[in-house]
Design a protein around this nucleic acid. Structure first.
Lengths: 342, 342
DNA sequence: TTGAAAGCGCTAACAA
DNA sequence: TTGTTAGCGCTTTCAA
C-alpha cells in the first residue's frame, strides 16, 4: 500500500533539497551529485513516495499509457499478449490500455489515430494481423507516435519491430511432413496481402521443393485465417479426384476447419489425412486429435515489444533494456499428423 | 483528428465566457444558463476541443481509467469481455486498463489494491472467477474503490453486480438431458468455494431431482474448472463399474477434458456418452464433436457492468444509463449430446 | 551541480 | 447563473 499524500514537495522538504533536484532524481538525470542522489533516493524510499502519473504527464505531456492494438474478434491469444506486455509495463511504470480495431474497415486508421490522440498514448504495440498494415505504421510515423510491431518479417526499421522467424519454422514443418512420407500435400495459406502468409508459405513450399516435392497450384488455397475459411478451403481440396495425404494450414484456426471438413467427409485424421497448423493457440492442445503445429511464443514477443517501445519513448534515458528483436517459433508434434499410409 | 492545442482557455476566450463556465458545460453542471450552454457547446464543436484527461484528473483527482480485473491464464473469453467493456468506455470517455491477477496467491488482494492505487483507477470491473472473492470486494469497499462484479448470483449490493441466472439455465440443461433419456448422469462441479459452482450444480441436480432422477454422490466430482481437472474427474467417473451415459461439466474447459478422457478410454461421444459444458467459449463450437453448452453473454454483461460502474463514479451527474442487472444465459445444443442408447 | 518560479489544462472554493 | 483565483503534483526554462 502507499501513503496517499506524499508529494514531491514532502520529499524535497525532508531531504533538504529543492523540488527540482528531487525531480531530477526521479527522472534519473545525470546532473545530480552522487551523494545528493543517494540521499534523496533514501528519503523517497522512507516516505514511500510514488510520483503521480497525472501530474507528471500533465507537466511533460506524457501519459504513461501504452496502447495495445489488436484485431477485433481475431485474437485467441490476446490474453497471452497482454500478460507479456504487462509484465514489462508494470515494472516500468506504464499502464496498458487495450484497443481492439477492425483493420478491414473504412477509416480504421483515422479511428486509431484519433483514439491514440485522445488518450495521449505514449506509444502502441501492434499485434498481428494489424501489425501488417503498412498504412497504419506510416500514419503513426507521421503523427510521431511511437510504435512497435509484432510481426514475422523485418519490413520496418529494426527499432519498430519484433519478429519471429516463421520461414525457418515452416521448414521444420515441411521436414516433418517429409519424414512422415507425405508427398501429396495441400496448403491453405493466409491472405496473401499479409507478409506473414507469404513467409510461411515460401518457407514451407521451398523446403518441400528442395526435397523434390512439388505442390501443384490446385493444392494451394488462399484462406482468410478463420475457422470458416479453413473449412471451405479444405472442402475444396478434399473434393478433388486425387486427395492429398496431408494439409498444412496457415494457422490453427484454419487447421481446425480442415479437421472439421475431413470429419464431415468421413476422412479420418490423421490416419487418412495429416493436418497441421501454426500458432499453437489455446485450442491446439485441447482438440481431438490434438494439433501438430508451430509454437509461436507470442507472450515473449509482446514483452520484447514493450521493452523496445519504452526504450524508444525514454530514449534520452539510459535504460539499457535488451534490444533483442527475434524469437524462434518451433514445431510441436501432437496427434493430427502421422505416417503416410497410402 | 483533433487540433492539438485547443484548451479550455481558447474555448472561454472565443465564446466570451469564463473558464469556469466552460468547465461547467464540460461537466454537465446544471448551473449553466440554457443559452450559455448552447453557445459554449457550439464553440467546443467548432474548435474541436477535447478536454485533457490528465489535467482533468489532476485537478479532480480522477484518472478516467477503469480497470479490468481477471484471472491470469483463465480467461478464454477475455477478449469478449474487453470488447463489451470498451464499447461503453470509449463512449463515456474512459480508458480500460487490464489487470490480470492470480487470486489463489498469497497477497493478491494487496497487489490489486496497490496497483489500483498506483494508477488511481476510478473503478474496476471484476470478472469471474475473481469476482467471487468476497475478501477482495470487502477490501475495495474499505478503500473506497468503486467496483462492479460480473457474477452468477446476487450476493452483493445490487449496484455492485451484474448477474446471469445460471441456475435457471442449468434447469434447461437438465431438461435437455432428461429429454434425451439419460438417467445415469455424472456431474463435474467447479470448485465448491465458488458460489457459481453451487448455483450451477443446484440448478442442475434439483431439476433432475424434480423429475425423479437422482445423481448419487459417487457420480459427482469436484473439479477445478481446468481442462486437466475435467480430464481427471472424467477418468474417475468413467472407471466405475456402472458408467454414466451422460456427463455435465461446470464449464467448457472441463467438458473438453471429459471428451478427451472418453476418447482415451475408447468411449464414443456422443454415442456412448453425452457430454456438455457451460460458457460457450470459443472452443465449444470448433471442437469435434461440437459442444452442447450454455451460452453466457459475457460481452453483454461486461458492457452492463461498465455502465453501472460509470454510473456510480459519476453519481452526481444525471447520466441516465440503464440500470439493468441481469442477463439470461441459454442452452445451445450441438453435437456432444444425443439420445441415450443403452 | 543546484534552485526559484512559471506553467501544463483543468477543477473547485468562494464571491459576486 | 457566472467569474476570480488558487491550486492539483509535477517538469522545465533560466539563473546561480
Amino acid at each position: 500500500m502507499q501513503d496517499k499524500n506524499i508529494t514531491i514537495n514532502d520529499v524535497a522538504r525532508v531531504s533538504g533539497v529543492s523540488k527540482r533536484t528531487v525531480s531530477r532524481v526521479i527522472n534519473r538525470s545525470s546532473l545530480v551529485g552522487e551523494k545528493t542522489r543517494e540521499h534523496v533516493e533514501k528519503v523517497i524510499k522512507e516516505l514511500n513516495f510514488v510520483p503521480d502519473k497525472q501530474a507528471r504527464g500533465l507537466a511533460s505531456s506524457r501519459s504513461y499509457l501504452l496502447g495495445l492494438i489488436y484485431e477485433h474478434y481475431d485474437s485467441l491469444s490476446i490474453e497471452q499478449v497482454q500478460s507479456g506486455a504487462l509484465s514489462v509495463c508494470s515494472e516500468l511504470g506504464y499502464e496498458l490500455v487495450v484497443h481492439p480495431c477492425k483493420s478491414r474497415e473504412e477509416n480504421f486508421i483515422e479511428e486509431c489515430l484519433a483514439s491514440i490522440a485522445k488518450s495521449k498514448l505514449d506509444g502502441v504495440i501492434i499485434v498481428p494481423p494489424v501489425s501488417e498494415n503498412k498504412a497504419l505504421a506510416a500514419a503513426l510515423r507521421e503523427m510521431n507516435v511511437q510504435y512497435v510491431r509484432i510481426a514475422s518479417v523485418d519490413f520496418d526499421d529494426e527499432d519498430n519491430i519484433v519478429v519471429s522467424d516463421e520461414r525457418e519454422a515452416m521448414k521444420g514443418m515441411a521436414d516433418h511432413f517429409i519424414e512422415l512420407g507425405h508427398r501429396d500435400i495441400g496448403y491453405i495459406s493466409g491472405p496473401l496481402r499479409y507478409t506473414s502468409s507469404m513467409e510461411r508459405m515460401d518457407g514451407f513450399l521451398s523446403e518441400l521443393n528442395s526435397c523434390d516435392i512439388n505442390v501443384p497450384n490446385i493444392r494451394i488455397k488462399e484462406g482468410e485465417n478463420s475457422y470458416e475459411s479453413g473449412f471451405k478451403c479444405a472442402m475444396e481440396l478434399l473434393s478433388e479426384d486425387e486427395l492429398p495425404t496431408a494439409i498444412l494450414a496457415n494457422n490453427d484456426e484454419m487447421a481446425l476447419g480442415v479437421i472439421r471438413a475431413a470429419h464431415d467427409l468421413g476422412i479420418k485424421v490423421p490416419d487418412q489425412l495429416s493436418v497441421a497448423g501454426f500458432d499453437d493457440n489455446i485450442l491446439a492442445s485441447r482438440v481431438i486429435p490434438a494439433l501438430t503445429t508451430i509454437h509461436r511464443p507470442i507472450d515473449n514477443m509482446a514483452a520484447l515489444a514493450t521493452q523496445k517501445l519504452v526504450n524508444k519513448i525514454q530514449s534520452e534515458q539510459s535504460l539499457l533494456l535488451t534490444k533483442e528483436t527475434a524469437v524462434k517459433p518451433y514445431l510441436v508434434v501432437r496427434e493430427s499428423t502421422s505416417k503416410n499410409s497410402t
